[in-house]
Design a protein around this nucleic acid. Structure first.
Lengths: 191, 191
DNA sequence: CACTATATAGACCGGTTGATCTATCGGTCA
DNA sequence: TGACCGATAGATCAACCGGTCTATATAGTG
């Protein structure tokens, strides 16, 4: 007889925080989070120990979601590694075009969390390495001469496109990045 | 008989704010700024009208300094437009290697200033357009087939390199970006 | 000298921060 | 029924926020 939906306070808090920390930065007040999630103050400290714990968990959740998106995007492009890589940049266009787009959530988090020892940094760092690993994996399948460097370059293009998408509305960063991504991917040997 | 140095409170405040807003984000407290600058509280409101005014002026100063750096870097590379453009990416390596490097100040500011109407945004936007204009100017001198798009791509590479430099310590973003910049610059026609 | 502008130190304001607390409500299960 | 547990609302806390204030000190100019 229990309603299958009706997420608990922990879930509501995570969802509200995921949305608010992106739109208003990591500096959002606890009160705003609690109000948006309709959750008691105490529940935050019961479930996450404090604001930092909540923020860290939010980042973890976000990375999982984004990694799933990478996987789905690439799988949706078929088996060819080249198609799978370029699909990421095609998808970027939609990401940037989304209504409330404000750039890369993880870069914003790293810049906002001044304390270098904040646990959130480890989450974002690990995420980037996993994404880089996915890119490198496809490049290896293509027998790219420098898969590690090329993966770094593709990630650089992604970060650059997200930054440009957040700051230079008139440009078309996804298309610009995709064009360069093709050059990176199709490099067969040093010139 | 007046000592030529001994900057006034306004100058001291700007310098302290320029440093602290970069290392600790735009969220630094006014007290921290005043203490670091050794300036009376009132002076801040006399000279800048408030914290927002100070932050905006800090961004303005920073953009002027960075634009001078672009100009000096390019002029130091000689007359050839190709050399002048690549010098920017060579300089990037030094920028990223600086001790307290924390990524692009202006991207961080845009992400931190949640209010879309904050006057700081206009400063950063104008700065990016001027930098893009400098790049495009050199590309035109090279008779690049698509100077505007290529300038966007070079700026995207710069932002990507700065982001990677702040978040992925092991990689060499400046060199990676420079390599791609060469491809952008040397594009003579559509493939 | 006096006048004015500018800088200083620091008290003070209302509001907000993150965090801890008590008390109560509403189920579940024995 | 009654014990228990997660969740709730909300009072309360010290600390800090940006901003205004008064009073005093200093420097330059007439």
């Amino acid at each position: 007889m229990s309603t299958p939906d009706a997420p608990g306070p922990r879930e509501r808090l995570l969802e509200a925080a995921q949305s608010l920390t992106y739109s208003h930065g990591m500096g959002v007040g606890v009160d705003a989070l609690l109000t948006a999630a309709n959750v008691a103050r105490r529940s935050l400290y019961e479930h996450f120990g404090g604001k930092d714990g909540l923020l860290t968990e939010v980042l973890k959740r976000a990375t999982e979601a984004d990694e799933s998106r990478y996987a789905a995007t690439m799988d949706g492009a078929g088996e060819d590694p080249r198609d799978r890589l370029l699909a990421v940049f095609d998808d970027l266009e939609g990401v940037i075009a989304e209504p409330g787009f404000r750039g890369c959530r993880y870069l914003a988090a790293d810049l906002a969390l001044t304390d270098p020892h904040h646990p959130g940094h480890a989450v974002t760092r690990a995420y980037r390495e996993r994404v880089s690993g996915r890119l490198e994996h496809e490049l290896r399948r293509l027998e790219h001469p420098r898969p590690a460097l090329a993966a770094d370059q593709l990630l650089l293009l992604i970060d650059g496109a997200l930054a440009a998408g957040a700051t230079r509305l008139k440009t078309e960063p996804a298309a610009a990045a995709r064009e360069l991504a093709e050059l990176v991917i199709d490099t067969r040997s040093r010139p």
